[in-house]
Nucleic acid binder design. Sequence first.
RNA 1: GCCAGGAUAGCUCAGGGGUAGAGCAGCUCACUCGUAAUGAGCAGGUCGUGGGUUCAAUUCCCACUCCUGGCUCCA
Length: 617
Amino acid sequence: MRPRRHCTTGAVDTWPKIRNMNGIQEDVMPEVQAAELDKLSVEERLYRIRHSTAHVMAQAVLRLFPEGKVAIGPPIENGFYYDFDLPRNLTPEDLEAIEEHMREIVSGNHEFTRKVVDREEALSMFADQPYKLELIRDLPADQEISVYTQDSFTDLCRGPHVETTRRIQPKAFKLLSIAGAYWRGDEKRPMLQRIYGTAWENPKDLRVYLDHLKEVEKRDHRRLGKELDLFSTHEEAGPGLIYWHPKGSRIRVAIEDYWRAQHRLGGYELLYTPHVGKAWLWQTSGHLDFYKENMYAPMELDNAEYFAKPMNCPFHIMIYKTQMRSYRDLPLRWGELGTVYRYERSGVLHGLLRVRGFTQDDAHIFCTPAQVKDEIKEVLRFSLQMWDDFGFKTIKAYLATRPPKSVGDEDRWLTAQASLQEAIEEQGLEFQLDEGGGAFYGPKIDLKVKDALGREWQMTTIQFDFNLPERFDMTFIDTDGKEKRPYMVHRALLGSLERFFGVLIEHYGGAFPVWLAPTQVVVVPVASAFNDYAAGIAKRLFAAGYRAEADLSDDRMNAKIRNAQTAKVPYMLVVGENEQSAGAVSIRTRTGERKEAMSVDDFVAWLGDKVATRAEI
RNA sequence: GCCAGGAUAGCUCAGGGGUAGAGCAGCUCACUCGUAAUGAGCAGGUCGUGGGUUCAAUUCCCACUCCUGGCUCCA
């Protein structure tokens, strides 16, 4: 299954997006008559189908475990889940048995009937269902309480549902996995067993979705990382720490070279700062008060405690404070590919996407109030251009504003929020407002990018910070000769190189565009008699700055092509008698296409163009 | 951290109370070949770590580590 916690899972555009953020039954759709079901949008129909399938599953589970307790079972994107408290742990075989019962229930053509009950009635109906009782007791006093019944099963539920189980096709749903989940997501409460399932309108849609899951698995960056020899992790050497192999490093170098070049053009200076800092630094920044549980334990040295850095900002501020800063010096844009370490609980580590040490493509912008607007606009534009260059074309913005508990002047918050929103609107970006969702120290924009499989990943963050300038007493001298507080914006565009690499691998399924491919060209001689010619071409390409090699192994030509193909090398140059005598190469792309033979000079120019235009192939 | 499942050759995996097997990769030899796998041979393992039960444990039991899928938070 896909890593739900790292991306909004999901789905090709045509697939309905149904979210249930807090995992509790919620439903904003009005009740409709059964006959109207077909008039509903596909999203609304699927919502009902999934919700109803969850009820059917609960009924099936209770058939197997009559003494089981049911918790909640909402529809989610692409499916549904239901949480249970059962006398024993479920096994994968149980899922098959449950599915069997579900098919039988569904084929009974039972109606879903809705009934409104008062609180007392509800409490007595679910007297032996403690989780339901808790839900009922937590409902607001003026809330209408409804229950839905199909066959012999009645559930507390706001609805809506399909009119009969006939709407649930026996071959259009599938149970996928069992997982532990805390009651109401609280680790102090009981651990329940959650069954995830997927449900669709018809068997064909289910098949398309299952194929999609297979494709997701094929593109899994951990699998491709191994197959393509890109990176590894080592439990003996510390979990969650990434080792970049030569081929992975080639890609990283290409990314970093691009990143530096773009930042230079964008008016950034680059910094290098230490990996550890004394307790004073983290005390001043507040990290020891608010972030300690995410930090590596201190090292003691000369009676002082040193911490590995979880963030780069305090170091950049130290540099800021080495001089008196004038308004004439601002804005300062300081970037750093800064490697940070954060403690993550062992259960959450996941390939490149969730690690304990990573390199942020970090930068801090220090500016005057008058400069804020333009700076934000530029950062956003910069970010979008970068995503475009890396081949991600669909971006969504999330603007998070001031939460109730927060620091900083009201007018600074308003200025900051206004400039964030204006920047988004100017770029014509689709965005969602997350009222009160900002950090206590400032509002922010997060960008989610959509990958080739339609999954959204949160990558870019652009964040105001009203806290650190105060804590470190940062100032600049304004035009009136007075000391003022600069604005500080923290931004990471790619996020972290590790995570970005993981997403990039999955986006391209390992078939990187030419400018990023670890090996851009493999020269394949048709027989060993042409080894020298092949080696000469590879050498020439290499000298011209390309990642090219000749395959001079004992393999036959067909095997060499296959090896290059499975390594997803964009171009294979096949050379034999014809090419040698003409000083040419014949080109085969990894898509299987054969191009007309061209002179080596022409190929160099052609390849240069492909790299410069960031062509996929 | 918690719940569940897993860990056997470099990789993918089979097996099972009497101390291990395949394919690919690797090495050697032969083949000199025109757009996705030439053939033969060789080598490769304290069966995750530690403890227990047993005449005997890789197999059964316990603990731990890591991995996988979830739960909370986040780049």
